[in-house]
Computed example of a mutant assay.
Amino acid sequence: MAQVTWRRRTPCSGPVWVAAHSARSGPPGLYARGVPSPSRPPELFPGVQLHVVSGKGGTGKSTVAAALALALASRGKTVLLCEVEGRQGVAQLFDVPPLPYEERLLVRPQAGSGEVYALAIDPESALLEYLDMYYRLGRAGKALDRFGVIEFATTIAPGVRDVLLTGKVYEAAHRNSRNKGARSYDAIVLDAPPTGRIAQFLNVNDELAGLAKVGPIKSQADTVTTLLRSERTVIHLVTVLEEMPVQETADGIEELRGTGLPVGAVVVNQVRPQDLDHDDRAALVSGSVDRSRLGGVLTAAGVEVTDDLLAGLLDEGVQHAERRELEDGQRALVHDLGVPVVELTRLASGVGGRDLGGLYELAEQLCTQGLA
């Protein structure tokens, strides 16, 4: 497939990006080179290498993970964006072909800034690599794959599956002598399983307790756990301002803390703009809006006013005001969780595919709030 390059201003007003992009989608636009802003806040989590991103399904965790990778790269870091659920979400967001089990360049800036690579990790490929690296099985390992042994092993032992997935992330974060010449990364962003499974996924030692008390798999689990519970790792949870996602976020934080895993920030995604102030919202909810005054404003704007039009507008206004009241209540609960909170606005244009501009907008918001 033919490839083209396109340039875009960095999320945090840094140098121009140049990204490999499929010719079928066309360039999303050109932006002038920017100048780093002196008011950019310091990072909330300096020294962290591994950013794990989780969240309830539908909250946009994959989008947030991709935006975070872009934001970290704008600081001049070489970043690896990983996914482990087999959904090819990263490929869809960046409108590129499905990712193989291989680190592929997604975004390359001009001189002076970082890069974003992507990797789709699947347990079968991770096990084959593990067998080759530690046991030198080579073709023998591939023969096992043809006989279905690897799929059988990872299916009957989900704990082993998670060790393999997180083990590949560990290998990328801690390149060693067994992987000579491999690229090293300043930061890794892991698009992880949803909140309901994140503690189980990352708590690989406990998951293996009944399967392997000694041996190489247990040794790898211990090594991975050391990274996941260290100061080099934080786990961010993505939510929206609705009751169920906020409650699941609170439960997830409690579960992560209970297992000794480090909680990072809560990212409140898809935040709607506050179009009305408190007094206007209160008037709508109480039904005390001056209908004649509203009609006069509409007439002055050239709108033909009818009773049905006024009734419809007021009904929509009440729904809007009530929605904002509910969101404010959920926002208060989020801020009571005792972790940093970052808010991302709801984008009318959407994110991903042919409209990559949304990702850059979100990345810039993450920068200005210090998550990167």
Rank of each mutant, 00 (worst) to 15 (best):
V18E: 11
G60R: 05
C367E: 09
S39A: 13
L190D: 00
A73S: 15
V163N: 14
Q88G: 08
R161S: 14
D122E: 05
G138A: 15
T78Y: 06
G296D: 07
D280V: 11
S288F: 02
A182Y: 14
P98S: 12
Q319A: 13
V266I: 03
R232Q: 11
L371S: 04
D280T: 08
L366A: 03
S288L: 12
H320N: 03
T259N: 15
G252N: 08
V4D: 12
S37V: 11
T154F: 12
V342K: 04
A372E: 01
A192Y: 10
L337R: 01
V342G: 02
Y101R: 04
V266K: 01
V271P: 01
L93Y: 06
R9K: 07
D307V: 13
T223K: 13
G260D: 04
S286C: 06
S74W: 06
Y135Q: 13
A19I: 06
D336P: 00
Y185H: 13
L309M: 08
N205L: 12
K77V: 03
D186K: 06
V84M: 08
G159I: 09
V234I: 13
L208Y: 13
E171I: 10
S177R: 15
G287E: 10
G114L: 07
G60E: 04
S74I: 03
P245H: 02
L333P: 01
P41H: 12
E124K: 15
S37T: 11
K77Q: 11
L261Y: 07
A282D: 15
R293P: 10
G264R: 02
R272L: 07
P27Y: 08
I235H: 02
V305I: 10
Q369R: 05
L190R: 00
R183C: 07
I235R: 02
L131E: 11
H174W: 09
R87V: 08
N205I: 09
L131M: 15
T306R: 09
A221F: 03
Q92I: 00
D315S: 10
Y185S: 11
G26C: 07
G26E: 07
P245D: 00
G114H: 02
M133G: 03
C82I: 10
G357T: 12
L356S: 09
Y134F: 14
D206L: 09
S22D: 14
E171Y: 14
L294K: 10
R331W: 00
A20G: 10
P158C: 13
L128P: 04
F152M: 15
D355S: 06
T78D: 10
G252V: 05
A66H: 03
T299G: 08
L359Q: 07
P194M: 02
L68A: 05
L119K: 06
D191S: 12
R197P: 02
N203G: 03
K142V: 13
L202Q: 09
R87I: 07
A140R: 11
T299L: 05
V149S: 15
